[in-house]
């Protein structure tokens, strides 16, 4: 499955400044592994202990994958995968 992945500003150091890169895979986990093969260092920014980082959001088209199986969420040919850092914080 060929997909297009949108890379957020903070991770573009891994993609030579590219905002979008092509990747392949049938699940989000496979797409991330494929990204890692071509843009080393990305996976560690997205995945921790076998799950998505709490403060990284990944969307397949319009859907946050947290509500669609997380790393096992399915992706289809032509899908857009968007990675966005959460905007969050707090007084403590």
């Amino acid at each position: 499955m060929a997909v297009t992945v949108s890379i957020p500003t903070i991770l573009r150091t891994h993609t030579g400044g590219e905002k979008t890169v092509p990747a392949a895979g049938a699940t989000v986990a496979e797409v991330i592994d494929d990204l890692e093969a071509n843009h080393g260092g990305l996976k560690a920014r997205l995945v921790k202990d076998g799950a998505l980082h709490r403060f990284v959001n990944v969307y397949v088209n319009d859907e946050d994958v947290r509500f669609a199986g997380g790393l096992e969420a399915k992706v289809a040919d032509g899908d857009n995968v968007t990675i966005l850092p959460a905007v969050a914080g707090g007084a403590r």
């Binding site: 959001n57 969307y59 319009d62 946050d64 947290r66 968007t82 966005l84 959460a86 905007v87 969050a88 914080g89 707090g90 007084a91 403590r92």
Partner: peptide, 15 residues
């Protein structure tokens, strides 16, 4: 988060 000590943009709003 609707909290006095934490904030987070809703993930759909963020996208």
């Amino acid at each position: 988060a609707r909290s006095p000590t934490f904030y987070e943009f809703d993930s759909a709003d963020l996208l």
